[in-house]
Amino acid sequence: MASDNAKTQKPLPDRADLDNAAFWAATAEDRLQVKLCAACSRHHWPPRLGCPYCGSDRVAWSAVDPAGEVFSWTVIYRSQTPGFEAEVPYAVVLIALKSAPGVRMVGNLVNCALEGLRAGLPVEAVFTPAADNSVKLVNWQPTERS
């Protein structure tokens, strides 16, 4: 259930979700975590309670370097998400994390012109407070201006 925010109406994560709360506790401290399997040593995303590669239940949150590169993206001209109508066009990027091979995360591109988007663009995470300051979302900006 999207919790509506009085200021923006944008959907927010459910920070009370028992399985994902630790992720938001970490972003509050500007840290990025994904799940790591102790049995096969592979990172995975999105966060599951069992390893999607080997099936082990020995999975736990693990801090990763919040850096990666643009793997793909879309530029949204017609938003169908409440609160985003006035922000079009905006880019949703799929980021391949450098330190966790195989992990690709969705976020918004920030501090970069849309024209600057390209595959392989090096990016770093920006921990962006939601409008009501209840949670920090993970967005991405270029690590080097090109």
Partner: peptide, 10 residues
């Protein structure tokens, strides 16, 4: 809900 919609991706 947690990792996509908050980014206007829904």
């Amino acid at each position: 809900r947690d990792f996509e919609s908050p980014y206007g991706f829904s």
